[in-house]
Design a protein around this nucleic acid. Structure first.
Lengths: 227, 227
DNA sequence: CCAAAAGTGTTGTTGTTACACCCATGC
DNA sequence: GCATGGGTGTAACAACAACACTTTTGG
């Protein structure tokens, strides 16, 4: 009889458009081991729920957040990840929109908070490794799939998109070329609305068009941002 | 107490340069459920071995093969994958060189055989889904990482590489452009040897240079084959 | 000398980069 | 009227796609 537990953990990213920071959602553990340390939201999978259901449930229970994009990241299976028993953890990767940033800690966790990715506290278990893997995935994936939009509000000024990419990829972007490139894909529509941040010229709002994106994909085209 | 088992399964690809076919390694099950049906090599993980060790062990036991490239593919966790108990399976993706094609079935499996990917028999469990996922990964990955070489012998005529890509991507390739592109990356070296297939002009042999590839990567360059 | 496979360059087209000034708003 | 952020075009350069004939070998 095997003595291995199956858990899920979630690395949930959020983007703060005001301060241009990428955040990760962490919880403070209420129980041993690693009591009072920060950790990724997650926990054991129940016998009758799928892995995805387990992730959603844990996120709901521990942080009250509901997620916007979720995909499987990697499965961490070293023998001594957990000091008590062997636990194989299937890690997931999630994105949320800024408007859902609100948190409320509950049952299993003492607290849930956003942390900026370069200022993470020491994490429980091998969670730092999981976070690193997730960040790498985010940075790679944002270049060839339109997942960046899941971090922005549905209608956004172009400069938000630009700043998001600058922050994520940690390099400057030429505003004109970036816009030309994206608009040429034909998956972003310009709306007849503007947005005034309070200062400067009001910005037009844009929206990502999922339908047009699937059309593009089915025609063999692809979303692709290089520089 | 959780009642979930943890297993690994492997989708191992091989390339037959003579017939230009991609093959997958399957075993015939000796035990229930799905007795006598074809399935992916794999099995339950032991308490004290890592997931990778489990894959290597199962491959060794069931097929006698030793693998050349191995990476984690995806974790399949639906509730009813296995009719007996709940089993979460961490699937791996492997590549072997043609010279190691030799098989010998043993302990756990009645037989191990190569099957051409478009002529697979009905598979046990959800293994067809795993194979589909693996194939998609192979086709995607071969475009932006030099894993194709793991399917060829260490020294190969350029036409082998070309045919491999034609087969994998199911589209014709312009011989001149393809070679120009690859050579321009500086990761393939031309050897002073030739190879005579028996017919036609002898071909120069080439070798993939791993060291130069890592150099390229560290300089921010990347392997990339589009069309 | 014929069949089979390997080898090789040029040109047009397309995509990418670099670059700087004017515009609309709030105070 | 000034500070702030938004909006826009062109030219040089690099990458990619299309394309067909010659060479070397074995039989």
């Amino acid at each position: 009889m095997q003595k291995i537990y199956v858990a899920v953990d979630a690395v949930v990213f959020g983007y703060d458009r005001q301060y241009q920071q990428i955040g990760i959602l962490l919880i403070k553990r209420k129980i041993e081991p690693f009591i009072n340390q920060w950790a990724l939201p997650g926990g054991l999978v129940k016998d009758e729920e799928t892995l995805e259901e387990a992730v959603s449930r844990e996120l709901e229970e521990e942080t009250g957040i509901s997620i916007n994009y979720l995909e499987q990241l990697y499965t961490f299976g070293k023998v001594k990840r957990d000091p008590r028993n062997r636990v194989v953890s299937v890690a997931y990767f999630g994105l949320v929109r800024p408007d859902i940033f609100t948190l409320h800690a509950s049952t299993d966790a003492a607290a849930a908070e956003w942390f900026e990715i370069n200022k993470l506290p020491p994490l429980a278990f091998d969670h730092q490794e999981i976070v690193d893997t997730a960040l790498e995935r985010l940075r790679t994936k944002v270049r060839y799939e339109p997942i960046g939009f899941e971090l922005l509000e549905p209608k956004f000024p172009f400069s938000d998109l630009e700043k998001l990419y600058t922050t994520l990829l940690q390099q400057d972007i030429d505003r004109r070329n970036f816009k030309k490139k994206l608009m040429s894909l034909g998956v972003i529509e310009e709306l007849n609305e503007t947005y005034t941040s309070g200062l400067g010229r009001p910005a037009k709002l844009y929206r990502f068009n999922t339908k047009q994106y699937f059309e593009l994909k089915s025609l063999g085209g692809s979303f692709n941002i290089n520089t």
